[in-house]
Amino acid sequence: MSELMNEIEGIYAVWLREAKIYVREKERLISSVISPLLWIFAFGAGVGSTVNVIDGYSYQVFIYPGIAVMAVLFTSLFYGIYIIWDRKLDFLKEVLVAPVSRASVFAGKMLGGATDAMVQVIFLLIIGLFINVPLTPLVVIKAFLMLLLISIAMVSIGLVIGANLNSPEGFSLVINFVMWPMFFFSGALFPVGNLPSWLERATYVNPLTYGVDALRGIILGINHFPVYYDAAIMLLFALLAMAAGVLSFRRM
């Protein structure tokens, strides 16, 4: 019992540190607000003026779920780079030598990253209200949970990469090869149904496709697969990513 309490306090300690630093590093907070704004207004409005209305929604509203997923994807994956800095500057040694399991250290970091991403999600949901995205309270809750699940999966992937690399430059390189294909082949910017068939197949092996599909289903009622099916696949993917994360932290 006290063992369990120790682990929980360990998770809390690691998370609390991440949360405090997130709030104190103003650049991190500011970029969380600015970047989704840019995407929705610059991209959504710009490209949207050349694209027809899709399924009865303006392009800006149509890509809103995709932008939300993208914001979570970027923030979450890039969070893994902090673990490299922590290691470089030895902040992590104190945690690694503490009598808490590596699974707990991972959980604390993972929740820290998810917290960053979810603060951004809150801003996004508020923006959504102003651009006529049909958000009811129930939709907001469902969307929030779905994005949390996506964030947990992606933070875990970022941490796996961060834990296995030693340089921030290496991290940026690897993350670009993970992030952009995942984003482009997820249907975030266009409906999957309209794609050539080889591309369509590429989207089906991409876990993020199911995240985007679920969110579009939840918010706009446009989905390719049943939402529970999307959510189940995302959950499975998140579990695998977390397991890989714990293993990577054990080897660190």
Binding site: R17, K20, I21, R24, E25, D90, F91, K93, E94, V97
Partner: peptide, 15 residues
Amino acid sequence: SIGIVFQAPSVDDLL
């Protein structure tokens, strides 16, 4: 069982 003070500083700057 142990406590350790590392040679290289490991306190957290932003706390």
